[in-house]
Design a protein around this nucleic acid. Structure first.
Lengths: 150, 150
DNA sequence: CGGATATCAGACCTACTGACATTG
DNA sequence: CCAATGTCAGTATGTCTGATATCC
């Protein structure tokens, strides 16, 4: 074989294509009137805050591979909706420790995510168990790639 | 059984998470100085034009699940770079038929996509053949979902 | 005139880069 | 003084909605 890298290029291209197209479909399918306010970035950041306990904007930004400024925006949205609380770090005045509020934990527990609804339904309706399993495995692999060191 | 929908919800959530995070990582990894000009939307649209022969903005927009205006932007970029040509439909004055130019076909044949480079390398380096196969299958399934009828 | 196509104009969302104050 | 953190600005991209002209 030794054609591993060729396959890798094809896989990369196909994966990118699938991601762009599925994203577009999800956007098209999302009902504007039902969208409350949370984006996936917000939801995922909230989940990460709950998992990692009190943390800082910089740490979150690093973990999600975005700039501090971008993450600050997300945090501001979450704070505006009362899903998180932030207090100055008593040991380091530069830092602001962010924690999930009771409301934030409650929200994530129910995981309403209107956008997810259509995808869940379509997956349940159009896919067999094997295909669902493949997607789940692929999601894990994609996360692994996203966090791979160099 | 009967838990298919629960699994579907979990799969949907995991897939969304993976897509958002991988996208972020790809953005972080893309080298700004190397980015020539093509976006994935442009590349995919170009591919679709080649596959479907002469077509219209509306048809392309429908196929990619975006608004006509958005697709018009993409088409304008492709035209500005000489990758496509467009002529008025002789039979229907409202339509503009779009075809790929020789340059466009040549470009897609080489598939340079600088953004793809990091992903290809990481896939080749960090993933085994089985995992690559899973991603490829998943990509096909994701496309299937993106085009599913209701 | 109603339906479809294309395009112009304005807005938004989310991320980016650059510059700055504060703290360690 | 230098490094890290957080925040304020301005920019860029890709998409959206609304309005308009043209053609069938």
């Amino acid at each position: 074989m030794a054609s591993g890298s060729e396959h890798a290029a094809e896989t990369a291209a196909e994966l990118m294509k699938a991601m762009v197209r599925l994203r577009a479909r999800l956007r098209a399918e999302s009902v504007p009137d039902e969208t409350p306010s949370w984006t996936w970035s917000q939801l995922m950041t909230l989940g990460r805050i709950i998992d990692e306990g009190p943390t800082t904007v910089s740490e979150l930004a690093h973990g999600e591979h975005v700039r501090r400024q971008s993450m600050a925006e997300t945090i501001a949205s979450l704070r505006a909706q009362g899903l998180i609380t932030s207090v100055p770090d008593p040991d380091d005045g530069r830092k602001t420790l962010i924690s999930a509020s009771v409301e934030g934990r409650a929200l994530l527990a129910t995981i309403p995510a209107a956008r997810e609804k259509w995808l869940s339904l379509t997956i349940a309706k159009a896919l067999g168990p094997d295909e669902q399993q493949t997607l789940l495995k692929a999601a894990a692999i994609m996360n692994q790639i996203a966090d791979s060191e160099v």
